[in-house]
Amino acid sequence: MIGIIDYGMGNLFSVSKALDRIGIPYIISESPEELTKTKGLILPGVGAFKDAMARLREKELDRFINTYVDSGRPLLGICLGMQLLFEESEENGRFEGLGLLKGRVVRIPERDADGERLKVPHMGWNKLQFHQEASVLDEVGEGFVYFVHSYYVNQMDEESLLASASYGVQVPAVVGRNNVFGMQFHPEKSSETGMKLLANFAKAMEQSEELL
């Protein structure tokens, strides 16, 4: 059973429908008491970093997520949910994140290295490039996935970078360290490639279940 964290910042319907499609049971909840009964967590999210962190704190979900990760069960942040895993963001100021991964969230530059203008948001299908082997990437292939975001993760640890996409800058696309995973794009909207990635996360969940 996956727990989808409902903190008022995401399109939960498309994530839950994607899990339906690949046959993974889930609950949607904002309650730590409910969510703690699950074997894996998904932190979705669209919108602003500051608001999202404020809501997580308000519902004491920030502490809950930390405890959950300490228990060894897997966590997947999607889009803004991935950005929240990092130390801080400079979206509309400077705000502290969950700090589960090292790195900062910064705005996509207006121009690339050649001075060509980059449209922001980075919106549409972009190709994954893998950086290292990881179970979450098993049988996925360097396919196309659907991105919509204006900020990206910078200064992260090389060893946590599993896949990236190129958009003027190197955009970390799949990140992972131990049981903490993030996807900057929307796997639930990324056709077969996205479904496979979600299925792999669910597999990681089953494996952790055996450990517990």
């Binding site: 319907f13 498309s14 429908k17 499609r21 659907y146 929307h186 639930e188 909207k189 990324s190 479904m195």
Partner: peptide, 11 residues
């Protein structure tokens, strides 16, 4: 919209 969202994995 609900029916389409249940069937499709594209935006």
């Amino acid at each position: 919209v609900q029916a389409v969202a249940s069937e499709l994995a594209i935006p």
